[in-house]
Design a protein around this nucleic acid. Structure first.
Lengths: 106, 106
DNA sequence: TCAGTATATAACCATACAGTAATGTGTCAA
DNA sequence: TTGACACATTACTGTATGGTTATATACTGA
């Protein structure tokens, strides 16, 4: 892969490297939500939630639909779910291995 | 998922959000390499390569083996390969869609 | 022990970005 | 048109981190 391609990959990972955005994605995984719903559930200030949602939208991870004065967001790319699942299963493996170190079966 | 778990996931994505580290991982994907080999191939300074490798090692993505004065690194967790493959295929889809916008079949 | 090589770490600076407050934009109802 | 609401954007500050230089550590051979 070229450096430019690796930089694009890195940018996508950077989008997912922020806990606040993962919280938003997790909430959206349960279904479409408005900004107000999301900021309430994630306990963020409005500007902060809006900014993070804009980042997710700029990278086409979420889709937005205006409905009156509300804007409803939803997950646009199932890739993010796959990515998070992969990382979660890795972390579970690591955690199990770490736990085994504390209580060996010797 | 709890906030603490999401933070751990975010930290792992942050490790992968640096082009230099992706370059190193890509080189290691071809097989084990020493620090000197990696810094030459990636055109990094020694301290920089060593620092990035330490980050990868701290997150158990690579394994290191001392052999005399040399240290050989190799990919320790195949998860990183899967993650990168997922992201790459997403980017290819996005690129194709973007290309279609410039030359519609209408 | 000493010199030389390979790697790791420390200290520093510059940049990027998350969170915040204030303000702007768009939509609806009256 | 005006007021109210939902959301987006701007400007700012503090913090985290990548790249660099200099130094420390680990190993080998003489």
């Amino acid at each position: 892969m070229s450096l430019a391609q690796l930089e694009a990959v890195a940018r996508l990972f950077a989008v997912l490297s922020e806990p606040s955005r993962l919280v938003l994605l997790q909430l959206l995984h349960a279904g479409p939500r408005t900004v107000t719903e999301l900021m309430a559930a994630a306990r963020m200030k409005q500007a902060n939630a809006s900014k993070h949602l804009s980042v997710l939208h700029a990278h086409r991870l979420v889709r937005r639909t205006r409905n009156g004065t509300c804007v409803k967001y939803e997950i646009a790319d199932p890739t993010v779910v796959s990515l998070c699942n992969l990382v979660c299963s890795k972390m579970q493996r690591d955690a199990k291995r770490a736990a085994a170190l504390f209580s060996p079966k010797i």
